[in-house]
Amino acid sequence: MPKKRLAARLLVISPSNRLLLFKVQFQAGVLAGTTYWATPGGKLREEESFEAAAVRELYEETGFETPSVGRCIAHKEFLWQMPEGEHVLAVEHFFAVHTGGEQYSCAQWSDREREAVCEVRWWSSTELAACHEEVFPHDLNNLFVTALLIAQGEP
């Protein structure tokens, strides 16, 4: 059984109901040539909760600040290959965060993020549904719609 990699992922939603995604493109290593769109987020630090990691990752990857991220809207577990080649069991909790605008910042990005992220874009649900590129998770548009319904007070 591979080791677990715990991560918090963020559905960052603008006032115009658009979702922030990063296009990841690996230039070297075992994943060289691999490209996909994904939400901001990342690995939990030692003894950090999923919620605390989500708040931290939100700031580090987008510049948006929030005191809390609310409840987890999705939990996913799947086998994943890391850029160094290691296979892990990815355990990810997804949180929806609504922003006051679309002005994100990459000032806090790590060197690794600067190397791997080749594009940042806000997506509507319609644009995401029509996307022919790889998007992770594969049911991201469903999660996005769920987050929008939750924001409107629907279950």
Rank of each mutant, 00 (worst) to 15 (best):
M1Q: 06
P2Y: 11
P2T: 03
P2G: 00
K3R: 13
K4W: 01
L6Y: 01
L6W: 00
A7N: 06
R9E: 14
L10M: 08
L11W: 02
V12W: 01
I13P: 06
P15L: 15
S16A: 15
R18A: 09
R18P: 07
R18L: 10
L19S: 07
L20D: 07
F26R: 07
Q27P: 01
V30P: 05
L31H: 06
A32N: 08
G33L: 14
T34Q: 12
T35G: 06
P40C: 03
G42K: 05
L44A: 04
R45N: 07
E46W: 06
E46T: 04
E48V: 08
E48R: 05
S49G: 04
A52G: 01
A52T: 11
A53E: 06
V55S: 03
E57H: 09
E60Q: 05
E60G: 08
T62P: 00
G63H: 04
F64V: 00
F64A: 01
F64D: 02
F64P: 00
E65W: 09
T66K: 12
T66I: 09
T66A: 13
S68K: 12
C72V: 08
I73A: 03
A74D: 13
A74I: 07
E77W: 02
L79N: 05
W80C: 05
Q81P: 01
Q81L: 01
P83H: 12
E84S: 14
V88L: 12
A90T: 05
V91W: 04
V91E: 09
E92D: 05
H93V: 01
F95R: 07
F95A: 12
H98R: 15
H98L: 02
T99G: 04
Y104V: 01
R112K: 09
R112Q: 08
R112A: 13
A116F: 00
A116T: 09
A116Y: 10
V117F: 12
V117G: 02
E119S: 10
R121Q: 14
W122K: 03
W123P: 08
S124M: 13
S125A: 15
T126S: 14
E127D: 15
C131A: 10
H132A: 14
E133Y: 09
N141I: 06
L143R: 10
A147K: 09
A147C: 11
L149F: 10
A151K: 15
E154V: 13
P155E: 14
